[in-house]
Design a protein around this nucleic acid. Structure first.
Lengths: 199, 199
DNA sequence: CCTACCGATCGGTAGG
DNA sequence: CCTACCGATCGGTAGG
């Protein structure tokens, strides 16, 4: 929200460290010196270490939500559910795996360090992020193109994608584009094999 | 390996705390007092806090590997790849979601706190654990019953299962049995729809 | 944003 | 396994 350049720099540096070493193992002194500050100075920008964690996650959610919107907007007007899901998957892989994109990984792994009130706020943003997924998956379910219900498919799909954080190697032969196609191939049955014929 | 009852108790108590609060946020004093000991006493059983973490994870891997072996042994002699994969999935869901089974979640989320040498040891155990999965999935791939290659299917499947740690609720209508069936339905194409006919 | 600092906590140990 | 303790670190603050 507040746009001080120094503040943004602290958030980016904190994100990297929170991701690499974890929230608890990161000291505010680490962050300060990586930003060329003295040990007490981060507290001029953030009330507490936890506030900084929240800022990192919040920044990640805003960016991801904005990016998702743009990805969908780029699609042709009559894009069907499968095409929309593909765009969502591809964008989400970018969110997870683009170099320097440490915010969402921090959310996934360090959320626990936040008090319930802040976690609730994040969950609201997550709900908004998942809306487009719910809709696409429900349409696919209605067309008989899922092998489970839309809700479970969404949970499985997110789990399968988040797993890339552990095994995906940036030097791998598989591009994010190719990877997205594989996810769609696994989770969405092609129309010609769908359980229910298109009416 | 070493079977002191006190030692095992410490491991179990540490596992719960490492899982609930994380490794860094858990103090050796927490663990000591939860075990009815004085603050310095855990160090009579474990050289360091990190050693205790390794013991937790190691215990989890041993138990999981043993349980997997037994699950497969219970199958009829001529069980096919799909049946074996189903048994593997069901067992793995138990490992992840059975009450009191905190060891593997700790491995998944706190591994990072270990030095490379110990992490390597764990990865070896993980390789052994995944062998049966590789084989079943390769057979399914050869029969045209996967929509991606065996290796990627395994990575996606593990990711999708590990996601249950976040969303699965023990009071939910869905039993682990039912859940395992859904995973198979999504990841394994039924024979009649397989790409390649059975020879 | 720096200086100088405090209070608390924590992993670990010596000696029994 | 307890007692008593140390050295180091850390989040945070007052005052400028």
């Amino acid at each position: 929200m507040e746009g001080s350049a120094r503040r943004s720099e602290l958030i980016a540096i904190a994100a990297r460290s929170f991701r690499t070493k974890g929230f608890d193992a990161t000291t505010t002194r680490d962050i300060a010196s990586a930003s060329g500050m003295q040990s007490g100075s981060p507290f001029y920008h953030f009330k507490s270490k936890m506030d900084l964690l929240f800022a990192v996650i919040d920044e990640g959610m805003r960016t991801a939500l904005q990016g998702q919107k743009e990805s969908l907007a780029k699609l042709p007007d009559q894009a069907n559910a499968c095409e929309r899901l593909h765009a969502l998957v591809l964008h989400h892989l970018h969110v997870l795996l683009s170099p320097g994109n440490d915010f969402i990984p921090v959310m996934l792994y360090e959320q626990r360090a936040l008090p319930p009130a802040l976690r609730k706020e994040i969950n609201h943003a997550k709900d908004r992020y998942e809306q487009a997924w719910r809709q696409a998956l429900q349409e696919l379910e209605a067309d008989g193109r899922l092998q489970t219900n839309a809700s479970l498919a969404r949970l499985m799909l997110f789990g399968a994608m988040h797993g890339t954080l552990i095994w995906h190697n940036r030097k791998q032969p598989l591009s994010l584009d190719a990877l997205a196609k594989q996810y769609i191939a696994v989770f969405v049955t092609p129309p010609e094999r769908a359980a229910k014929a298109i009416t």
